[in-house]
Design a protein around this nucleic acid. Sequence first.
DNA 1: CCATGATAGATCGTATACGATTTCGTACAT
DNA 2: ATGTACGAAATCGTATACGATCTATCATGG
Lengths: 225, 225
Amino acid sequence: MSTAATTTASKSERAYQLLHERIGNGQLVPGYRLVLSSIADELGCSVVPVREAIRRLEAEGLVTFERNVGATVASIDATLYLHTMQTLSIVEGAATGLAAHLITDEDLRRARELNNQLRECLENFEPVRFTRLNNEFHAILYGRCPNPHILDLVHRGWNRLNAMRASSFDLVPGRARESVAEHEGLLELLEAKASPHEIEMAARAHRTGTLNAYMAQKNQSPSLL
Amino acid sequence: MSTAATTTASKSERAYQLLHERIGNGQLVPGYRLVLSSIADELGCSVVPVREAIRRLEAEGLVTFERNVGATVASIDATLYLHTMQTLSIVEGAATGLAAHLITDEDLRRARELNNQLRECLENFEPVRFTRLNNEFHAILYGRCPNPHILDLVHRGWNRLNAMRASSFDLVPGRARESVAEHEGLLELLEAKASPHEIEMAARAHRTGTLNAYMAQKNQSPSLL
DNA sequence: CCATGATAGATCGTATACGATTTCGTACAT
DNA sequence: ATGTACGAAATCGTATACGATCTATCATGG
């Protein structure tokens, strides 16, 4: 009956999505205390669905939960950031490598167009748009990965990283420019039909910010971090 | 007061662990219907904690859940098995590579001892013990990985795979023997202080069952599957 | 002034109850 | 005999209520 999107979403699902979005866009900063009853009141539901939503967020690492104490938005730590980024570099690299031989010319064309738009963002200093387009760019590169589990891990990693960046870790200015250049290198590898392994390692290195070093000394095996 | 282990574990935690174990050891076969009220009765608690436990299991991929219908132990599919194994190969490989430079001589000694015991299991045909010792062996190799997120992913992968094997996919007879030989190769790489990248790829190839092919043509970049 | 213990408040954990949805069996019409 | 409609049973989804546990505040003694 409803032409709009699923209006039959369960309340726990709505609670989950609301909190997920608010954590993702920085409305809920790390350390913020999530009180079940307050959230339930705001959503106009009881605490049971809210509890379930929070446990799901906990499973994704977006909130921490302590028995009889409560939930707080996961706080950030340089080590945590590093670990998350490292994990993402591995799974996203693998996804990109697995997707490489399935990517279409149209995908590559769109990716190249996005990368040009990223350049514009750099010149006009549009960090928000940059982040969005950057996500789109990478989503194209790994999107054809035929293994849904790996794609799921990539999304989880992005979510965690996103939650972190929105709060305190923001783009390192110089890094963004470097990133766009690295994208170019990735596109060239893909267009040249390089081996999946080489593409995987390049995508991984891009995340770890050492693609250039990798390209310079690619005969030597690259360190993981 | 209680000298025994944590008696204060929440009921949802107990429900989770019970179901997790039963799925892991094959008591609950894929396709089995998990009815909240029945489990609640058996555990002597209400349905709310059971529901939470089941959603956790769902998040790990051990059960599937359908709104207003119920939960069933995740059924197995050759594709699902392949995807799970592939994911595990990637994250476990990465974990092993990251752990390589932290592994101790004592670790290697124990690993070698375990591998010898695995050989005994082969000769005496002890598949159950083989599986247990095999898990221990790999746990030693990747155990020193300093990134807890990656370790978590490895454990999730093992759990899913374990749930599958216990039910219908069992050890391929010939593969077990091959596996022990590949362990030997891994140990040699570790003892020789090979590069993390090389160890990562060897560990990954071991999972995908193609270490030998990899060793034979290791100049060429190995395909991911 | 500081340490310690008790009390009150806040919050979580779970039991119970009831409504919503699905599924399955049965009767009926074709 | 087969397909369909209807109704009952089963099961999930969530609201509400109450007990358990933690935290913070404050009084008391050193």
